[in-house]
Simulated assay, not measured.
Amino acid sequence: MLMGVVYGLWAWAIRRDGGPITTGNVLFGVVSALVFAALMISVHRVAPTLPRELRALSWAAFAGVTFGFLYSLAGASVLRCTAMALGVAAGVFAVTFYRYYTTE
């Protein structure tokens, strides 16, 4: 999945932090991409069977966790990462709930 590749490259670039390309950094990017893609595919398959509230919540949780992980790689504090992830999750929940509510 293309989004998994983009996520893996982004995670790899943040962890590399302008230093040399190492096997550990590349492996970290590949594993991040695989985990992201597997989670996204599973949410994409399970979400349509859920009611609209839980469907929106599942996408919001996915977006919040994945954003929070990338944000934590930059070296921010746990509290700031949590606050930013909750903000992203709240925004994704609002948008997806509105979409599901208006299209059902």
Score class of each variant (00 low, 15 high):
V26P: 05
I41P: 01
R45M: 08
G18N: 03
M40C: 07
S32H: 00
G29P: 03
A38T: 13
P51R: 14
S42A: 15
R52V: 12
G18M: 01
A33E: 03
R52P: 09
L50V: 05
H44I: 07
V31P: 01
V30I: 14
P48I: 03
G18T: 04
G19C: 02
S58I: 11
A33T: 01
G24W: 05
A33F: 00
V30K: 00
L50N: 05
P51D: 15
M40V: 04
S58T: 14
L27A: 15
P48A: 05
L39I: 08
I41S: 12
G24A: 07
A56C: 13
N25D: 13
L34D: 02
P20E: 08
E53N: 04
V35H: 02
M40S: 12
P20K: 04
R52N: 11
A37C: 08
T23W: 15
I41D: 14
E53T: 13
R52G: 07
I41R: 11
P51H: 11
S42M: 10
H44D: 14
T49Y: 08
V46G: 05
V30L: 11
V31M: 00
H44E: 14
A47Y: 01
L34V: 08
F28I: 00
F28G: 03
T49A: 07
N25R: 04
S42F: 13
A37D: 08
I21V: 14
E53P: 01
L34S: 07
T22L: 05
L50M: 12
H44W: 12
D17V: 03
P20A: 10
S58F: 12
R45V: 09
G19M: 02
P20T: 07
A37N: 06
L54P: 03
L39E: 09
A33D: 03
E53M: 11
N25G: 15
T22V: 02
V26Q: 04
D17K: 01
G24Q: 06
N25M: 04
G29I: 00
V35K: 03
P51Q: 10
H44C: 07
T23D: 09
T49E: 13
A47M: 08
A56P: 11
I21T: 10
